[in-house]
Design a protein around this nucleic acid. Sequence first.
RNA 1: GAGCCCGUAGCUCAGCGGUAGAGCAUUCGCCUUUUAAGCGAGGGGUCCUGGGUUCGAAUCCCAGCGGGCUCACCA
Length: 518
Amino acid sequence: MNNLTNYKNIKAWPFVEAIKIIKKSENLNSNRPIHFETGYGPSGIPHIGTFAEVLRTNMVRNALREIKNLNSKLITFSDDLDALKKIPEDYPYPEKLSKYLNYPLSSIPDFTEKYSSYADRNNNLLKEFLNQFNFDYEFISSTNMYKSGNFDKCLLKILENYENIMNIILPTLRKERRESYSPFLPICKKTGKVLEVPIKIVNKEKGIIAYKDDNKFIETTVTNGNSKLQWKVDWAMRWSALKVDYEMNGKDLIPSFELSKQIAKFIYNKVPINMSYELFLDQNGEKISKSKGNGLSIDEWMTYGTKESLSLFMYQNPRRAKRLYFDCIPKSMDEYKKYFKDVKEKKQELLESPIWHIHEGTMPENTYPIEFSTLINLVTALNTSDIPTIKNFCLLYIKNSLDSIEQRCLEEAIKLAVKYFQNFILPKLKKRKPSTKEKEIIENIINDISNYKEEISAEEYQNLIYKYGKIIHPENLREWFISLYQILFGSDNGPRLGSLFYLYKKNKVLQMLQEAIK
RNA sequence: GAGCCCGUAGCUCAGCGGUAGAGCAUUCGCCUUUUAAGCGAGGGGUCCUGGGUUCGAAUCCCAGCGGGCUCACCA
């Protein structure tokens, strides 16, 4: 208990959430681990929002472990018995998929032929993303739970409370929908489709429901995977069946959560502690969605940024609607480095830094030695994707020697910066043609360099450039440098040319200059 | 209709009881080479408005005004 008061002053939200759990669990007086749940609908490639939810839930788990060494378990629950409602645009075979509308995701084949089913493919993509971050989680498939009978006890409890549940749900629906609504969706024995049909007969003793098909009543059990629940009821049932203590959700699910809460009272009264987070917006402030293709995917972030930078972004202000687009990446990369530095130089306690949450409470030994935005500027200035050249230029700049971790991080950061440069900066750069006077001067430089038999030093290159600069712009050398940068790189500034030429070596320099005057 | 979030420098945002901040933009100064991958200095604010709590409010509470999103099919 003493420990708890120590952490109460920490404002970081994972600690606040963890304290909520501790307060509630003290009344529970049970020895089982605390159960965290995150939900996932495998109807397409995993959304960055799903990923954010797991990441953030894990941050609460870590905080909980720190405050009071409580065991916990993270359940990643996949709704893979849900029916396919829309054809996702990111799937390579949409026309093949379109024949499987209303089939459970787990009974649709995977046409990429890599996985046992369409759901299995999406589930595995999610797991891959999660594994990249070394999460400790237990993956649970809805299909498995229903079919193995693990949900049966709770399903019968739902059936017992059929009318109570209808009374909660019906007022929230429109008139047309009220006619057809049922908490149970039978799975058709003939076709295997998930049916949205009105339930005509409810037999609580036998655990059976019946619907009408061609004027005949079709009976089916609610157990053994013969039917599944509508999702709000499903959610409530799952809380009880899996003993969920904590679950996050996006703000779009707040009304659903409230409804599920009421339903849960009829089963075992198990309602998780809940935190709702704001949705991500795109650059223009609109909600990101897969169908629009706006915002960022996990893969896209990982193309230009480290996982630490992604974690940091997800950590910051989950209750605020944030814009998620490419510019966020360099910003987050630099912020990460700054937080790292503050802890390393003891300007900030690790426990009070986002670094604690990103790295599960431990301080990594080191990180990239140069700000990412600086690196992007450098790559832009050098106008190259050649990693050794960039790295060598970095080493000219850094005075202290780098340890092996810094070396590795630097190389990783350079690769990311190169990608960023290639995709966002390079297309906007426009090299200009030299004037006749400039062309003449550059030809002279080429001549001079060609006349050297051996490689020359950075200083000699620089002298050469100055020598001709004084001829073409005697009163303002700056103009000369700007012109050179514009002609060679398409920007107004750049690296010290002497050093760059030295790194490029004679042949490559000549090639670059000849290219420029073509 | 209900719920959630946001109003802080020109722009994007951080700060969330104790002197108003960052990045970009802007203005000025600095390249015959020892870091232009720029560097240095400055300007710029009714912290949306009005009340309240407090010794003290951008920060907490209440009311209002703007802007945005979400839900009310499905998940």
